[in-house]
Design a binder for these strands. Structure first.
Lengths: 143, 143
DNA sequence: TATTGTTATACTCTATAACTATA
DNA sequence: TATAGTTATAGAGTATAACAATA
């Protein structure tokens, strides 16, 4: 078997490169990839629970719990006991957090544009769809 | 911005799921993803240098150096001073290593087949090509 | 001095489980 | 007792740099 023909390998290889590039861009804003995903997710839909954010940020809940404390100390988010179900904690983005999102999203989009500029739109749409389908399949099976 | 429309996010999300599934399969053979990639790479082309293997296995060279020691202790590979350039160390797969590759590759291919069975062949070919192109672009820029 | 690899250290993220608060 | 989250601990990988061997 040739590794570069093996699909999971190909995906992991490019994912690693992209993560590393993204992280460098975000480091200028003192954010790691996970914190940025949390902010973007809250900017889009505020007041999500820790468990929800663990899902969207692709971060273990124990890691995320500490990360959120750190982000709260920095004034990016605020944690509140949820109502009516006070077993949950909801996380809320602050004005500072919104500002960081406003600054970083253009960078992210520029980065994405540079990355994708030579790719045919139709091919890109197909790739998106395949990747999403693979994700669903992987979740479904959970080998 | 919606995170699930952001291309680097989509790739990372599926890559994470695939790595985690693959790791579970390989755990039955007492291998992590990195060690398996090393074995498959050497099975295909034996006697590669540590630096080369760091590239194909997507592993930092300092991590890999220790991993290779561990694999050598387990009798999977052997390190030798290269000739004529003895600054390099070449890594050679053992008979045991070959056996592990023979056992694991069918598992990996079955896994890949399950993953890809519902995907149209043409779409898959396009996706492969796009992912490889993205990888090249990311390497080229190295933001 | 340059290249290749090893080792040491601190740091981050993960995995697991024990623990707390709420229902 | 079940759910949501926090905290503790150990382990795996990374990043960086100092170090050794070879050229």
């Amino acid at each position: 078997m040739i590794l570069t023909h093996y699909f999971p390998y190909i995906i992991n290889r490019v994912a690693g490169e992209l993560s590393s590039s993204e992280s460098k861009v975000l480091a200028e804003f003192d954010l790691n990839l996970q914190a940025w995903r949390v902010l973007v997710a809250l900017d889009e839909h505020d007041g999500q629970r820790v468990t929800d954010l663990s899902g969207v940020s692709l971060t273990e809940i124990s890691t995320l719990s500490r990360l959120l404390d750190n982000m709260e100390e920095r004034g990016l988010v605020e944690k509140r006991r949820a109502r009516p179900n006070a077993r949950s904690v909801t996380v809320h983005i602050s004005a500072t957090g919104r500002r960081v999102v406003e600054e970083t999203i253009p960078e992210a989009l520029r980065y994405q544009d540079t990355l994708l500029e030579d790719i045919d739109d139709k091919d890109l749409a197909i790739t998106r769809q395949v990747l999403n389908q693979l994700y669903e399949t992987a979740l479904l099976h959970k080998w």
